[in-house]
Amino acid sequence: MFRFIVHRLNFLKAIPLFALIYDSCLKIGVLLTTPEKLNWFDELESEILSWEGTSISLHKFGGTQFNYGQKEIGHLHSNGLLDILFNKQVKQELLVSGRAEVHHIFKKSGWISFYISTENDLANAKFLLKKAYQNMI
């Protein structure tokens, strides 16, 4: 469903608030199906906010955006899809090591995606965000 909306109905993101509302639907869906994920996302948010100079905001395409100063570290959609921008060399290393997948839309860019599906994935999500954060500071 998420894949279909993002790929086929991508034009809808131009409608003001649409992406945020869609992300709220994901939140409600997660609450009803896998509520434990919301605790993991909160834990991830607390972890990132404990790093110096970080803040969070709403991502323009829905989800939570993690920032360092004015720059985006990455963003987490409410279905557990984490997107982070690296340079292409780091991206390649992460793909080879199996820590990340190619971005769900921008396959040729430096963006990577990582699905948080289990509690064990949380450690890798923190690792990826920390790596992006350290590249910025």
């Binding site: 945020l20 509302i21 709220s24 639907c25 939140k27 409600i28 709403l58």
Partner: peptide, 11 residues
């Protein structure tokens, strides 16, 4: 209503 109130709460 549920989706929009939730959106407002997170905004």
């Amino acid at each position: 209503i549920f989706a929009f109130v939730t959106t407002g709460a997170f905004i």
